[in-house]
Write a protein that binds this DNA or RNA. Structure first.
Lengths: 134, 134
DNA sequence: CAGTATATTGACGTTTACGTAAACGTCAAT
DNA sequence: ATTGACGTTTACGTAAACGTCAATATACTG
């Protein structure tokens, strides 16, 4: 694996535009190095981006994602206040995830019901009658 | 349980504004009856709203949620085309949910790591040293 | 050295999901 | 008769999350 990446490499890898990546930087979710004025992304930056996109797939707003991302570093913080704050935030996120988990279970069950009904009706139509036979 | 509901009843029950509920109607996610020009919501409408909000907690856009909601009725459809289309859509949604499930597992694991680090550091600070003792 | 590819920074446009206010109707209670 | 709580429509505003130029710089490539 490479040590560093360009913006377009990351864009291709994750299927997003460079505009989006710069936007994330604007919103303080990334802070790549500069070589001249070109952005250089480390493997750590790449990981942050990967985590960011995971958060997006869960429908989280960018500022929440930013907070979670910052917890990774805050876990090493020196100040008690900061550590305790992070702990609380972790709990919040955990609860959100639990709720989403429940929502997923429920949705899955519903989809299963729908699909079953569909398949039964399809079988009824295509199987038994001659209505549409050539 | 009541047979019907007013817009503000539903608003209160689910902690959303009436403006939001009307907006969902505008976007074809709800279609309450009218009594005069006042909206009357049946229990079925209420269920749709509940499912809608579940979709929102999963970060789904409203038009996707609308499609899923419509599957409930499409499951009873008469046309083969429609039934097969619905089946495909169900599969899509199922895959999305699977992906979100994976994302949740991964996020949970990460949060656990962060919390562990935090608690260890906190123990180090509050437990051993006299740095901040009165 | 002109051309192509890749990068940059603005600036403005767009979509989604509502919020907010205006202006009005309806009905019950004071 | 008016006040207050609820409802309505219409219209404009707004925050988030980018997309879409345009103008510019830098680098390599034939």
């Amino acid at each position: 694996m490479q040590e560093t990446f360009t913006i377009s490499e990351l864009g291709k890898e994750f299927g997003i535009t460079t505009r989006a990546i710069r936007f994330y930087e604007d919103k303080q979710l990334l802070s790549p190095l500069r070589e001249g004025n070109k952005r250089i992304y480390t493997r750590s930056d790449r990981t942050r981006l990967k985590l960011l996109l995971r958060g997006k797939r869960l429908g989280w707003p960018l500022d929440e994602i930013r907070d979670v991302l910052n917890m990774y570093e805050a876990g090493h913080a020196g100040e008690l206040q900061q550590l305790e704050y992070t702990c609380r935030k972790v709990e919040e996120s955990r609860q959100q995830l639990e709720q989403q988990k429940l929502d997923i279970e429920a949705s899955m069950a519903d989809l299963a019901t729908i699909e079953k009904r569909c398949r039964e009706r399809i079988k009824l139509i295509t199987g038994s009658s001659d209505e549409n036979a050539a």
